[in-house]
Design a protein around this nucleic acid. Sequence first.
DNA 1: GCTAGGCAGGAACCCCTCCTCCCCT
Length: 196
Amino acid sequence: MNQDFVIFDLETTGLSPAQHDIIQIAGVRVVAGKIRESDLFFSYVNPGGPIPAFISSYTGITNADVRGAPGLGQVLQDFSRYVGAATLIAHNGHRFDMKFLKESCARHGLPTRKINYQDSIYLSRLVWGKCFGGHGLDAVLARLKISAVGSQRHDARGDVDLLARAVEKMWGMLPGPSAHAALTVYEGVLPALLPA
DNA sequence: GCTAGGCAGGAACCCCTCCTCCCCT
């Protein structure tokens, strides 16, 4: 596998890209099919408003965590630079994370560039087909016997760590390169790279 | 006190529309 990947996860103030804001981004690079555990991206994002109590309870992310954090434009620019030419992977990214990135860029008037991405939910469907328990991250982790102990679920760093281990295992379960090629590569957006 | 929005995919049916379920925070 020659293509480099960045497996990433967003935490947000809610489910609607049109109404809610990104508050945390984490990513880890995968080169030649191997996770580079030391090559991480992480940042809180200051959403410019209060985090709903439900979200703080769900994610553990508080207003104090994001108060001193950079704004979305800066963080997404840094993330875009980190990603470079890699293909992004997120769990349910086709329906959630990539839509959040696109809508967030649009709402903040950020010029964009095109980026390829895959959705690990489709990887799970490729491996197990229609199966009991579905293809949510918890179900995938349970099937792969990946323990979340030691990783903070619903924190982007923890979720990225778990997802990366899951993706690596699922890749290993595919019968061959043709199966890899069956995974749809979508086109999304990240902020255009500005001169450093 | 606050637990929501909307896609993808299938069904029904003939090519769009409607419906239901999944999954993310």
